[in-house]
Design a binder for these strands. Structure first.
Length: 492
RNA sequence: CGGGGUGUGGCCCAGUCCGGUCAAGGCGCCUGGUUUGGGACCAGGAGAUCGCAGGUUCGAAUCCUGCCACCCCGACCA
């Protein structure tokens, strides 16, 4: 593993890219815009997935799986949704290759194997799912229908970045059907809270909950709820969205149900999703110039134990202590790696576990054998202290809790520092251009103004925060009346 | 889609302008030995049709033509 990372302060983008590689999270594949998620990175995703999956089930959802291909005729049924995604679709047109008569050993697309109807590789699954729901829903007794799917989707973006925006990515998408508007709205909001709780409690990533402006709304939605996080470079990251779809998809796919009075009604819908992008958010929220910093609740390894020894005999003595401590910690559900690999020196291992963001490192050497101690180093603050071996598992358990709390606190403090209010256009541009971060400002509510602000500053409305108070003001750009402030930032 | 790069052992890359012991170096890997409290060292060893296809030439990683792929910066988006 190579040494050192670029400094965040000098080139945040290069820092991020190199960190992803050096922490062994993912790498570029031979396929444009597509990544290989490596075991360590995938382990983080699995941890995220496990927690979210449980939360979805606790809120009454079931998992199912729908096809990756969407026939074009289904795809185009909900017009706005289709239009929104049309520019970034991969399309299957043929189903067979054959030997190329002109090029020995090469294959070509068999023109005889052209599909009658093209298949769209799902950029999202509303179409295929709602065409299925039509068959599943007849009566109010079939509602609510609460389904989640873990899947891959493809969006042919112009420009990609590992985890943050890849052509293919992993995500979950919830698709629910309800008898009433109120119920669908409640669901939409509920899932946004599930995401927000996950972001804060597990990722230690504070988020702002709010509503997207019309132009930022999901294609085909009536309303998009979102959680927005702030990265260390002052840019915002949309970390999750939950959409109230109204009856748009029900109407497009003719999904009606008989209510208790036998009257036919269109069902109400929501959809919501988070993706492997969360890993990008996790990285950019906590990590430092030494590498990844992971919150204990999502770290694949909680504790790495590094022996420091001279000769096999000493190693054996240390291993005895290490294995006992490891067993104690494991009994408390702490994931421990005892790294007695003789091919690496301690210094190398220290740097390696720092790069990989392991929350706690324990070193045990001859001094410790004598004193009955171990050296405990925490990744978040880089502090080291010597602790007695007695009750170490309990101490480490507490330490992991503290690290989890500290990471969230630190991220909150950072976000507070980089959240400001602008009352004039000058203040606004000054903040956006020079300081970065979130900027609260009055907006006249028009798409035109939103667009102009974006053109002139690159800042977009991240959301209309739920906890924003209603107050009369005047738009920082147009000077027209505003009903309240909204949240601006440059975004990923 | 514009702009800029890159493609050479598993990885990072030198060499390309100026064609000829040029396929160099570092990391990693294998063998042996010494080491081990912040990325060890010594000795020996294995590993490359220089992105692909043509062409020029006595001779091409190097020059010419065409193609392909990926990355980075923007516009578009999760």
């Amino acid at each position: 593993m190579a040494k050192g990372l670029p400094k965040r302060s000098e080139d945040f983008s290069a820092w991020y890219n190199e960190l992803v590689g050096k922490a062994d999270l993912a790498e570029h594949s031979g396929v444009k815009g597509c990544m290989v998620v490596k075991p360590y990175g995938y382990a983080i995703w699995e941890n995220m997935k496990a927690v979210l999956d449980q939360k979805f089930k606790e809120t009454g959802h079931q998992n199912a799986y729908f096809p990756i291909f969407v026939p074009k005729s289904l795809f185009e049924a909900e017009e706005k949704n289709a239009e929104g995604f049309a520019k970034e679709c991969a399309i299957v047109t043929h189903y067979r290759l054959k030997n190329d008569p002109d090029k020995e050993g090469k294959l070509m697309v068999d023109p005889a194997a052209k599909l009658q109807e093209e298949l769209i590789v799902r950029p999202t699954s509303e179409a295929i799912i709602w065409s299925t729901y039509k068959k599943w829903i007849q009566s109010y007794r079939d509602l609510p229908l609460l389904i989640n799917q873990w899947a891959n989707v493809v969006r042919w973006e112009m420009r990609t970045r590992l985890f943050l925006r890849t052509t293919e990515f992993l995500w979950q998408e919830g698709h629910t059907a309800h008898a009433t508007k109120a119920e669908a709205l409640e669901e939409t909001e509920k899932m946004m809270y599930v995401y927000a709780d996950f972001a804060e409690d597990y990722m230690a990533m504070p988020v702002i909950k709010g509503l997207k402006s019309e132009s930022e709304r999901f294609a085909g939605a009536e309303d998009t709820y979102c959680i927005e996080a702030l990265m260390q470079d002052g840019k915002a990251l949309q970390a999750g969205t939950s959409h109230f779809l109204g009856q748009n998809f029900a109407k497009a796919f003719d999904v009606k149900f008989a209510d208790a009075d036998g009257k036919q009604e269109y069902v109400w819908a929501s959809s919501w999703g988070v993706s492997t992008r969360l890993i990008g958010g996790l990285i950019m929220t906590h990590s430092d110039d030494l590498g990844l910093v992971l919150p204990p609740k999502l770290a694949p390894i909680h504790v790495a134990i590094v022996p420091i020894y001279k000769g096999g005999e000493q190693l054996a003595q240390i291993s005895e202590v290490a294995n006992k401590l490891k067993a104690d910690m494991q009994a408390k559900g702490i994931i421990v790696k005892y790294d007695d690999d003789d091919k690496r020196k301690p210094g190398w291992k220290f740097a390696e576990y720092e790069m990989k963001g392991v929350p706690v490192r324990i070193a045990i050497g001859p001094r410790d054998l004598e004193n009955g101690t171990v050296e405990v180093a925490r990744r978040d603050t880089l502090e080291k202290e010597s602790l007695q071996q007695e009750d170490l598992a309990i101490k480490v358990e507490h330490l992991l809790e503290q690290i989890q709390i500290n990471l969230l606190d630190r991220a909150k403090t950072y976000r507070e520092e980089f959240t400001n209010v602008a009352t004039t256009w000058d203040e606004f541009t000054e903040l956006i251009d020079n300081k970065g971060g979130f900027v609260h400002a009055h907006w006249d509510g028009t798409e035109e103004t939103e667009q102009k602000i974006k053109e002139e500053t690159k800042a977009t409305i991240r959301c209309i925060p739920f906890d924003q108070k209603e107050e009369a003001g005047s738009c920082i750009y147009s000077g027209n009346p505003s009903k309240g402030m909204v949240l601006f930032a440059k975004a990923y």
